[in-house]
């Protein structure tokens, strides 16, 4: 069980949205996290790695800033085994490469722009994630 956190989740969502709007207003870029990671991997596709690296570094710094501001790190719980993290990670890497994006790029930025590709991609991955969780938890059991 996890606690239902509508206020915190809405607040976090608004911050995610504000950051996405700020990135578009300043650098003119979509805040797609898989695209930023992919853009840093070889072979180098452009000289655009600086802002990508800086954005990801800012994200990684977030827990330390929250710790300094609130006195505690946000707690997370990882039910998946190491094997599941590896297989899941590989599939996510392959999927976002072929699918040109993930939850941030398609699910937030693309959906907000009413992009047909992003809406189709988001509906598809929400469906397959739901089916996967159902199979793991209720068919295979656990």
């Amino acid at each position: 069980m996890t606690e239902f956190t509508p206020v915190l989740s809405l607040t976090g969502g608004i911050l995610i949205g504000l950051a996405s709007v700020m990135l578009m207003a300043t650098l003119g870029r979509i805040a797609g996290i898989s695209g930023m990671i992919g853009g840093l991997l070889p072979p180098p596709t452009s000289g655009e790695w600086g802002w990508r690296l800086a954005f990801l570094a800012g994200m990684i710094t977030a827990p330390a800033v929250l710790l300094a501001a609130t006195g505690s790190m946000p707690a997370i719980e990882v039910p998946s085994s190491t094997g599941m993290l590896v297989i899941g990670g590989l599939l996510v890497g392959i999927g976002v490469s072929y699918g040109s994006g993930c939850t941030s790029g398609h699910g937030v930025c693309g959906m907000a722009r009413l992009s047909a590709r992003s809406i189709a991609a988001t509906l598809t991955f929400m469906l397959t994630t739901g089916v996967t969780v159902f199979v793991i938890r209720h068919v295979i059991g656990g």
């Binding site: 996290i33 898989s34 990671i37 990801l56 994200m59 990684i60 977030a62 827990p63 997370i76 990882v78 039910p79 998946s80 599941m84 993290l85 297989i87 899941g88 990670g89 590989l90 599939l91 996510v92 890497g93 392959i94 999927g95 976002v96 490469s97 072929y98 699918g99 040109s100 993930c102 939850t103 941030s104 398609h106 590709r117 189709a120 991609a121 988001t122 598809t124 991955f125 929400m126 469906l127 397959t128 994630t129 739901g130 089916v131 996967t132 969780v133 793991i136």
Partner: peptide
Amino acid sequence: RLLGGAAVFGVGWGIAGFCPGGAVPA
């Protein structure tokens, strides 16, 4: 390619529980 990729991403997300945007701050 788009829909197949999105479908595979979803399966991976359901197995691991992390998406790229969630994992980087973590």
